[in-house]
Design a protein around this nucleic acid. Structure first.
Length: 474
RNA sequence: GGGGCCAUAGGGUAGAUUGGACCAUCCUACCAGCUUGGGGUGUUGGUGACCCGAGUUCAAAUCUCGGUGGCCCCA
């Protein structure tokens, strides 16, 4: 049972929902969590869908070691600086101390690029478009939250190498397009695509782009991202090739990722005071059948329920909840906490009218559906649920995106949503705003940049170069 | 990075100020049975816990120190 209300205490609500729904659990290791069947199914589905799109874009899956020799991690200075405070180290094997410490990967550049440097010889070896599905460990000292900030999380790590800067740049559109499609089609979540500022870019990158998402408490969460590494890593790891003209050049590289954090975003955005609301495509169980009987009509109801179950099972992930020890009302509540998209109630009335009663998780609306139209009706109902979830999330994002012209106005909206304001591009102004308001620049929204012309910086008043999206951020 | 609060069955709690009567309270969960069944049925019986280590004491869930873990606020 949930006691916290989402609109009153969202952090307590979040904890109660993910635990009580048996979505995830805490583990004995601080900051590290357990994916139970429902959350792992959702991730696995997301992963398979993303992977299929990657493969469509010519990306190949590989796997690299979990451990990275210390000397590799030290090769790119910004990279080291960014990650070293959070690295977990392997120092011993059994009782003997290792001659060189091994880092548990916080990200895989250092181990992958050592191989890249040996594999790439000629322009004919390029481009390389590799991806690994893996988990990484970042020993965060901020208070960990399951899915949103875990010390170990699952993700994809795309790593590409190109002969030219132009080719590398062209990849960004493809990958971010895939991520937006995954967010839209599977998680039913919108986002704001844009460039990160130099302060906020990935450690070692030349430029980072992200999809920023807005949570119901008015805070922003960084979603999937894509980084242009330029030749930084290529120079540090000596990834060179002989070009057509006979000269030796360094490759241009990109990296990109989507993580299990998205499941946290899904919980926050779609969930309600009854529990989780899982978008149909990510639901391990899409439809749950609850037979309603008393001792007299029991067999009849169960027989009818089983026939409906056999029918639905052919097209949907369906579960028949014929447990005898719980009442229908109890079952309704349980499946609602778990966020199952559709509940079907079957009792005497439904048998008489050769129908079922379907109840939507997202709206709670009940409707009677004749059995001979069941498969088609359920199919469109699931689609409706998905698009309703997306539309609601999009409306929330739109109604909580504030375009502001002066600093006082910006301050008023901090913590209440995305705040778009003109910015001169200086790190000083960015830092001052963050210090004074707590809001940072999440990114520079791609679709808003044409509005920067003629505007003045929200902080210093000098000529603006960008429209920046300010928000308090997870 | 700084400050504060907390730790008792699977979950939530009482017991602590005043160390003893506590083989530790209550709700929930779990197991067995009966009952019930269109929004968390009722009932009987049962299972299950004092975060870890050291100290003080005749006696520690309770006091002291250390550790570990969790939560909140500020940067």
């Amino acid at each position: 049972m949930l006691t916290a209300k989402k609109e009153e205490d969202i952090t307590e609500w979040y904890t109660q929902v993910i635990i009580n729904s048996e979505f995830v659990d805490y583990s004995a290791v601080s900051g590290m969590m357990v994916f139970r069947p429902d959350s792992y199914f959702a991730w696995d589905t997301l992963k398979e869908a993303t992977d299929a799109m990657f493969k469509g874009a010519g990306v190949e899956d590989v796997y690299f070691p979990l451990f990275i020799p210390e000397r590799f991690l030290l090769k790119e200075s910004q990279h080291v600086e960014g990650f070293s405070p959070e690295v977990a180290w392997i120092t011993h094997a059994g009782k003997s101390e290792l001659s060189e410490r091994l880092a548990v990967r916080p990200t895989s550049e250092a181990i992958m690029y050592d191989s890249f440097s040996r594999w790439i010889r000629s322009w004919r070896d390029l481009p390389i478009k590799y991806n690994i599905w893996a988990s990484v460990v970042r020993w965060e000292f901020k208070h960990p939250t399951p899915l949103l900030r875990s010390r170990e999380f699952l993700w994809n790590e795309g790593h590409s190498a190109f002969a030219t800067f132009e080719e590398a740049e062209a990849e960004r559109e493809v990958i971010l397009g895939i991520y937006e499609k995954v967010l839209h089609d599977y998680l039913a979540l919108p986002g704001i695509r844009g460039k990160k500022t130099d302060n906020e870019k990935f450690a070692g990158a030349v430029a980072s782009y992200s999809i920023e998402q807005l949570m119901p408490d008015g805070w922003a969460l960084q979603g999937p991202d894509h980084h242009s590494d330029g030749q930084n890593f290529a120079k540090a790891f000596d990834i060179g090739f002989v070009d057509k003209d006979g000269s030796r050049k360094y490759v241009y590289q990109n990296t990109y990722a989507i993580t299990t954090r998205e499941l946290g975003a899904m919980v926050l955005c779609h969930g309600d005071n009854k529990g989780l609301v899982i978008p149909p495509k990510l639901a391990r169980i899409q439809i749950v059948l609850v037979p309603i009987f008393n001792n007299i009509g029991k067999e009849e109801v169960l027989t009818y329920s089983r026939s409906v179950f056999e029918l639905l099972k052919k097209s949907f992930r369906t579960h028949l909840d014929d447990r005898d020890e719980y009442t229908p009302g109890w079952k309704y509540n349980e499946w609602e906490i778990k966020g199952i998209p559709i509940r079907i109630e079957i009792g005497k009335r439904e048998i008489e009218s050769k129908s079922v009663t379907a109840v939507r998780r997202d709206t709670g609306k009940k409707e009677n559906i004749k059995v001979d139209q069941l498969t088609d009706s359920i199919k469109s109902l699931l689609e409706e649920i998905h698009s309703n979830l997306y539309t609601k999330a999009l409306k929330f994002l739109e109604s909580h995106t504030f375009v502001v012209k002066d600093y006082e106005e910006l301050k008023k909206h901090v913590g209440k949503g995305m705040i778009q304001a003109a910015w001169c591009g200086s790190a000083e102004c960015e830092t001052k705003v963050k210090e004074e308001t707590g809001a940072k620049i999440t990114n520079l929204p791609s679709n808003a940049q044409d509005r920067a012309k003629g505007e003045k910086c929200i902080y210093c008043g000098k000529e603006a170069k960008h429209i920046a999206n300010f928000a308090k951020s997870y």
